[in-house]
Simulated scan of single mutants.
Amino acid sequence: MKTPPAPRRNTDTPEPTPEQRAEIVRRYQAGESVYKLRRELGVPETWLRTRLGDWGVTLRGYAEARKASREYRRRTR
């Protein structure tokens, strides 16, 4: 039985500094979407989702993400 290969990391995208990482986490937990963050950061969505998980952030499900998005837009108008 063959062992599956280890997950590959995108080595083209530099790791954020601790300050950048804290800002990304803060913004996500404040309700900003993965889509918006990844567009601003210029990184693939899978890269951002993987890093958030690695950093101990619980990712929102679809319904929770829609609710957070509505609340975030309401606060930032």
Rank of each mutant, 00 (worst) to 15 (best):
R74Y: 04
R75Q: 15
E19T: 15
W47V: 05
R21D: 01
L48V: 06
R39C: 10
R39M: 11
V25E: 01
R26A: 07
Y62S: 12
R73Y: 06
V43M: 13
A30V: 10
T13R: 08
D12Y: 11
A68V: 09
P18A: 06
R9Y: 05
L48N: 01
R38N: 11
R66F: 09
T76G: 06
R21H: 07
L59N: 00
P7V: 03
Y28P: 00
Q29D: 01
P18E: 08
G42T: 10
A6Y: 02
R51Y: 06
P7K: 05
A6L: 04
T17K: 07
T46Y: 12
L52H: 02
T17H: 06
E23G: 09
Y35L: 14
R27I: 06
G61K: 10
A63E: 13
Q29M: 01
G42V: 09
Y72G: 04
V57P: 02
R26C: 04
L59M: 01
R8L: 11
T58M: 00
K67R: 15
M1T: 03
T58N: 00
Y28N: 00
A65S: 09
E32M: 01
Y72E: 11
Q20V: 09
T76S: 12
E45Q: 15
T3N: 14
R74V: 02
L37S: 04
P18H: 09
R70F: 04
V34H: 02
S33C: 12
S33V: 08
P4G: 13
G42P: 10
T58A: 02
P5Y: 07
Y72W: 15
T46R: 13
G56H: 05
K2L: 11
V57Y: 05
T3F: 15
G42R: 11
A22R: 08
V43D: 08
P18D: 07
R38M: 12
D54V: 03
A22Q: 08
P14T: 09
G56C: 05
S69C: 08
G53N: 03
P16G: 03
A68T: 08
G53R: 03
T17L: 07
A65Y: 04
A6R: 03
R26V: 02
V43T: 10
E64A: 05
E45D: 15
L52K: 01
Y72C: 12
P5C: 07
R66V: 09
K36R: 15
E45W: 14
S69H: 12
T11Q: 13
R74P: 00
E23W: 07
R66D: 09
E40A: 14
R51G: 02
A22W: 03
Y28M: 00
P5E: 10
